[in-house]
Every structure is written in structure tokens, then in C-alpha cells.
């Protein structure tokens, strides 16, 4: 029986590009004064990957680039979602980032500089107050 490694290629492409995007979106959104510039860069990279995936005759390369491209396009949209997490206080705001500083300064802001998720689970309901 022959081994078909195309699925393994797809699984690795999916896992690695999601991991990259997961970390990159958080780090870039934290530091960047605008979200539209990284959004445009990620969208352009995603479209370039999809174009390359369309024109190549290599099935493995087409598969990996197809997955990478869609992931980058989704990451472009994730910058907006990440900013919403900052506004809700579900991700830490960066007081040295003017965009985040404005969010933090808004009246009745829920934003926080604390990374509430950075801890071990305690297997009991703690609420947010335990951190403050």
C-alpha cells in the first residue's frame, strides 16, 4: 500500500500557519499604532500565497500555500477581533501604544494591562476580581 503524504503536508501547513498567526497577530496588534497597516500587509501576503498556490503545478506546494494563504487572510481580519479583545479586557493592553492608551483612557473602559489568561487553571471559579 502506498503512503499518501499530502494530508500530512496539509496538517503541518495548517498547524504551523495557525501557530504563526496566533502569535503574530497578538504581538503585532500589541505594538502597532494602527491596525489597518498590518491588516493590509497580511491580506496582501494571503492573496500572494493564494496566487502562487493557483499557478504552481506541484500539488503539495499548492496545498500548503492554499492553507497558508487562507490563514493569512483570516489573520488580517483577526487584527480587528484582537482589538475588540483589548477593549473588553480579554487581552492585555499596551500603555505605550497610543491606540491602546486611548482605549485605556476612555471613560468606563474595561481594558486592562493585565494578561488575565496568563496563569495555570485552578479548577474552581475565580472570577476576574482574584487578579486585581
Amino acid at each position: 500500500m502506498e503512503i499518501n503524504a499530502l494530508g500530512l503536508t496539509a496538517a503541518l501547513a495548517a498547524f504551523l500557519s495557525i501557530w504563526f498567526g496566533h502569535v503574530a497577530v497578538r504581538k503585532i496588534e500589541f505594538a502597532s499604532p494602527t491596525i489597518w497597516i498590518p491588516t493590509i500587509i497580511f491580506a496582501a501576503l494571503g492573496l500572494a500565497a493564494e496566487y502562487w498556490s493557483l499557478i504552481t503545478d506541484n500539488l503539495s506546494l499548492s496545498t500548503a500555500l492554499g492553507i497558508l494563504g487562507i490563514t493569512l487572510l483570516f489573520d488580517a481580519f483577526e487584527f480587528t477581533r484582537q482589538q475588540k479583545r483589548i477593549i473588553k479586557g480579554h487581552a492585555p493592553a499596551n500603555p505605550n501604544n497610543p491606540r491602546h492608551a486611548r482605549i485605556l483612557a476612555e471613560p468606563n473602559s474595561h481594558a486592562t494591562t493585565i494578561d488575565l489568561l496568563k496563569r495555570e487553571p485552578r479548577e474552581t471559579q475565580t472570577g476576574i476580581q482574584a487578579h486585581k
Partner: peptide
């Protein structure tokens, strides 16, 4: 998925696996 010869099915199964790992 390594033992599935149909490319479409092979890839879909493997990506389901990657979803579980992630």
C-alpha cells in the same frame, strides 16, 4: 490519513486531525 489514496479525503481527514492537535 497517510493510508488514504484519494487526495481530497486524505487532506480533509488530516486537517481534522490537525484541528484536534491545535
Amino acid at each position: 490519513s497517510l493510508f488514504i489514496q484519494n487526495n481530497w479525503l486524505c487532506v480533509i481527514v488530516a486537517v481534522i486531525g490537525a484541528t484536534f492537535v491545535w
